[in-house]
Every structure is written in structure tokens, then in C-alpha cells.
Design a protein around this nucleic acid. Structure first.
Length: 501
RNA sequence: GCUCCCAUCGUCUAGAGGCCUAGGACACCGGAUUUUCAUUCCGGCGACACGGGUUCGAAUCCCGUUGGGAGUACCA
């Protein structure tokens, strides 16, 4: 059998380190067996997927050196006879619709007209009753002729799979001692075709894996729960299912699934920081896997040679930045002086790209850059008490304001949707000033009035500027805060507060 | 809540019933080299989650408990 494997990322947000991790395993497995490594873009969520994000994925794979044999054409990679490799293009070809219709015709799927609101109240009821939360199959027995009529009348609907109601699903995952067993009655009648006519992951992935002749699906274990649906779909569609193998998820230090709140997950970040792709790959290779001789540093070529799918450890490994840095150091020190110079210049360039326009106004020649940029790269800044306390204020007042601002920014930064950029920061701080400078029209105490009076642009801006940079002068405040970055700004605000003790 | 998965030092791992007094790496602590620092070298700390079986013998097999994780979407 020809080995053909794929990775199928969804182009939302930045290219993810998890994609690199699963990609590496698939790549090694393919190359080890002389097979093909395919990239497919799963952009069936029209609200979240972007072309830019897809481009970033291609670029990231190229950067890492995980070049795909088939996939969207990009810089010498891709092409192939099983395309198109982007699912939105396949939707236009009517590929998924065809299979959904087949399932309907076979009686293996059905139309469902339940509205989002109805489903929501159903779930609320199930939650309240401590019942499993799943679709109650209310349209499963609905008359097909009736359904077709409503469809023809233009009523919105989805198509759901009609999975068995009894019996057991059993599947042997080669990495697990015990077979995976699930009762069919616990398995949801999942949506296959959404009301916008686009397929969900389940349909699209199964259909494409078959059409692209994928032999092994090596994916993260978050998919294990939907395995029965995928196997069942293969069966009903008359496909020979690929072998499914589930590997552990990358974890944060607290063992939860890796997330950008707790770890840098964007491959663009690692690139911008100046991590070498060889080092990142080598580090990833050590997670869930090991060199047979216990060696820890080895190139991709060598990994291809010893890679053994059966030796993968399924427990989700913690992504340990300290170890990555160690490996990165090993690789970096091996660089020729010329390459190292290049790497440094590249890192400096990308790190300070946003800074040049800001600093340019305040410079007279290129050599001024280092002195001007210092607060933007320094690990810590030194605060002078006399700069930290704006004219006319008491030390204690300044301290209180800084601590309040510190808390405010921290709260802002920990928000789910928080974006640390110039407009957001400006809106936040101006909002705070507007709000806190108000006092009740009647009944305000003199103390309240005194505090409210401190919330002036002049005072607050000055405090933030000095606390964040250690200086009285800087580029425009909010650009400055944005450029310095969330973590250092919060740290420095904390330090400034302490300084005023 | 319900379903499924997982379990060796803080972290990544080696370990396929006797080679285990459990090996390596990162981190941490000490020391040597280095005018300093980094590198490098040497040493130290440090784990089989717990309880029952099976067996002459269990980190390894089985069961239970506990702990952790994932899924539970018209997201992937």
C-alpha cells in the first residue's frame, strides 16, 4: 500500500504550533515509508476562515522545511492530482453535496429543521436534568416527502447523519492497549451539511480523505470522540476507511490543551523571535517520541530514518519552553559567524519593524536608534521617583494611580478578546479617565472630588509614560505601550508602584 | 453532568515480567575551566499516583480508586 498522509489545518488566526507538531509526525511517517505528505485546507467555516491565514500556513510549512508533496501551490510546494486542496473550492464543485444526497437517498441521513433557539432550550433542559447534552433526534423519523417539500419551499435546514441507535462501536487504535469502545446510543446525529449548504468537518474530512486516497490519518486526540462518526461515514459511503491514529495533545504547563493565553502558539512568533526551524522541529520531535539511541539532537533527515509510529507516547506532553531554548542554543552556536550575523539582523529587523516609524521622527541619524529604542528592548527600566510623581501630586497619590492603572491594564489584558494594540489601549485609557473623573452631582465628599480631579489626561499619560519607559519623553504614548508589549508594560507598572513605597 | 482517553523525577523521556539499587535530557543546586559572563566539564537533588490481584518474580499484565486531559457546536 502506498502511504499517503495529510494534515488538514483550518485557516483561522495564526499558523499553530500544534499544526507543526502533527505535521512533523505525518511528514516523517510519509517520508519513512516513501509515501506522500499532503496539505489540505479545511476552510468550511465561512465566518472564521481567511485567505491570509491560509497563506500563512503555507509559508510556515515552507519555513519549517515540512514541504508538502501535494496541496495548494506555494513557492515550489504543492500541486498534485487529487485537488483542489482547498475545501471551499471543493464546495463550489458540489463534491460534498453529492455525498450528502447519497446518504439521504440511502436513508443514512435526514433533514432537520430545528432552529438554533430550539436547540438551545433543549440543551438547557438537558443540562438542568444532568442528562448527556446531545441532539434529541427530533427530526430523525420525519417524513422524507414532507421534508423535501419544506426544503423546496426554501425553509432553512441542515442534514444530519442517522447513526445506529443500538450496539457498540469498537476500534483498535494502534497506539492504545485497549480498543476504543463506545455505545452508538451515546453518539450524536451530527450535522453533515450546514444551513449555508457547506459541509461540516465530519463530512468534508471523510470525503476528502477518501478522494485524496489518504491511507493513514494521524491526528490529535481531540478527534478521538468523533472517530465512530468518521468510521461510520466511511462505511455508509462505501469507502475503505484510512487507518486512524490519535496522538496526544500538546499541553500548557498546567496540562491543559496548549493555548495562546499560556504559551506562544503562533509559528510566526517563533520565527520572529529568531528560533531556527531546525531547533523547533527537533524540540517537537522529542515530544511523545524519542531517538532509539537516546540522542536528543538530530536533524529532520535522521528523524525520518528512525521514526516509528508505533513508538509514539500518547500521553499529551507539556510544551517546555526552557528545553526548546536549550536546543535552540545548541543549534544557534553551531551557526557560522556569517549565518549568526544574518540571524541576528533578521531578528532585530522583525522585532523592531513597528518601531522605526515611531522613532524616525525623533532621530537625526541611524546611529541614534540604539539610544532611542532602549526602553523598547530593555529587560527592565529604572524609574526615577522625581519623574514618576507628576507636578503638584503627592507621592502617595501617584502610587495609588499607578497601582490602579496596573490593575486596570492587567484586567484588560486577561480579557478573552483583548488585543494589545494602539487603538484598543487608547480607547481603554481614555475610557477610564472619562469614567473616573466624574463625581456624583450631589453628595460627593471632598475626598472623592480630589481623587476624581487626578484623572486628567496630563497626569495619567505622564504616569503611564514614565512607568512604562522610565523616561519623560517617548513616542506617542499608546504606540509606545503597544510596541513595548503587554508583559513588559505590566511588569514595569508593577515595579513603578513598588518604587513609590 | 455525561462519554471517551491518559498516568515513570518539576518537565520531556528510556523501560515490551527478572538486565531496575529505574537510565538519559531540560530545569534547579553545588564545583572545575573561563580576567567576567555565556559555553564546556564534573557532581548533587529528584519519579514508577494509590490499593488489590496474577506470577517464583511486576514500573511492565488484570481490576478498582484517585488524579489529569479531551469531547459534548450549523468550529475545526
Amino acid at each position: 500500500m502506498t502511504v499517503r498522509v495529510r494534515i488538514a489545518p483550518s485557516p483561522t488566526g495564526d499558523p499553530h504550533v500544534g499544526t507543526a507538531y502533527i505535521g512533523l509526525m505525518n511528514y516523517c511517517f510519509a517520508k519513512h515509508h516513501g509515501g506522500k505528505f499532503v496539505l489540505r485546507i479545511e476552510d468550511t467555516d465561512q465566518t472564521r476562515c481567511t485567505e491570509e491565514s491560509a497563506q500563512n500556513i503555507y509559508a510556515a510549512m515552507k519555513w519549517l522545511g515540512l514541504e508538502y508533496d501535494e496541496g495548494p501551490a506555494f513557492s515550489g510546494m504543492g500541486g498534485g492530482d487529487h485537488g483542489p486542496y482547498v475545501q471551499s473550492e471543493r464546495v463550489q464543485l458540489g463534491i460534498y453535496r453529492k455525498y450528502a444526497d447519497q446518504l439521504i437517498a440511502q436513508g443514512d441521513a435526514y433533514h432537520c429543521f430545528a432552529t438554533a433557539r430550539e436547540l438551545e432550550s433543549m440543551k438547557a433542559r438537558q443540562r438542568a436534568a444532568n442528562e448527556p447534552i446531545m441532539y434529541d433526534r427530533r427530526f430523525r423519523g420525519y417524513d422524507v416527502g414532507e421534508a423535501l417539500k419544506r426544503v423546496a419551499a426554501g425553509e432553512p435546514y441542515v442534514i444530519r447523519m442517522k447513526t445506529p441507535l443500538t450496539g457498540e462501536f469498537v476500534y483498535k487504535d494502534r497506539l492504545r492497549k485497549q480498543p476504543v469502545v463506545k455505545e452508538w446510543k451515546d453518539i450524536d446525529d451530527q450535522v453533515l451539511l450546514k444551513s449555508d449548504g457547506w459541509p461540516t468537518y465530519h463530512l468534508a474530512a471523510v470525503v476528502d480523505d477518501h478522494l485524496m486516497k489518504i491511507s493513514h490519518v494521524i491526528r490529535a486526540e481531540e478527534w478521538l470522540n468523533s472517530l465512530p462518526k468518521h468510521i461510520w461515514l466511511n462505511e455508509r459511503l462505501g469507502f475503505t476507511a484510512p487507518e486512524y491514529v490519535h496522538v496526544g495533545l500538546l499541553r500548557n504547563a498546567d496540562k491543559s490543551k496548549i493555548s495562546k493565553r499560556k504559551n506562544p502558539t503562533s509559528l510566526k512568533w517563533y520565527q520572529a523571535q529568531g528560533f531556527l526551524p531546525e531547533a523547533l522541529l527537533n524540540f517537537l520531535a522529542l515530544l511523545g517520541h524519542s531517538h532509539p539511541d537516546g540522542k536528543e539532537q538530530f536533524p529532520l533527515d535522521e528523524m525520518i530514518g528512525f521514526f516509528d509510529l508505533d513508538r509514539i507516547n500518547v500521553a499529551g506532553p507539556v510544551f517546555d519552553m526552557a528545553k526548546l531554548r536549550h536546543l535552540q542554543g545548541l543549534y544557534f552556536r553551531e551557526l557560522s559567524p556569517e549565518r549568526a550575523h544574518q540571524e541576528v539582523m533578521r531578528a532585530v529587523d522583525s522585532r523592531f519593524a513597528g518601531l522605526f516609524p515611531l522613532l524616525k521622527e525623533r532621530m537625526t541619524c541611524g546611529g541614534d536608534f540604539l539610544a532611542q529604542a532602549e526602553p523598547f528592548y530593555a529587560a527592565t527600566v529604572t524609574h526615577h521617583v522625581e519623574d514618576l510623581v507628576p507636578k503638584g501630586l503627592e507621592k502617595a497619590q501617584a502610587k495609588l494611580l499607578i497601582e490602579t492603572l496596573h490593575k486596570d491594564l492587567k484586567t484588560f489584558a486577561s480579557g478573552e478578546q483583548a488585543v494589545w494594540d494602539t487603538p484598543s489601549l487608547e480607547a481603554l485609557v481614555r475610557g477610564l479617565i472619562a469614567e473616573r473623573s466624574q463625581v456624583p452631582a450631589i453628595g460627593a465628599t471632598p475626598e472623592q472630588i480630589a481623587v476624581a480631579n487626578l484623572w486628567q489626561n496630563k497626569i495619567i499619560f505622564s504616569l503611564l509614560r514614565v512607568a512604562a519607559t522610565g523616561r519623560r519623553e517617548s513616542p506617542p504614548l499608546f504606540d509606545t505601550l503597544a510596541q513595548i508589549g503587554q508583559l513588559p508594560v505590566l511588569e514595569r507598572l508593577g515595579a513603578a508602584g513598588m518604587k513609590l513605597k
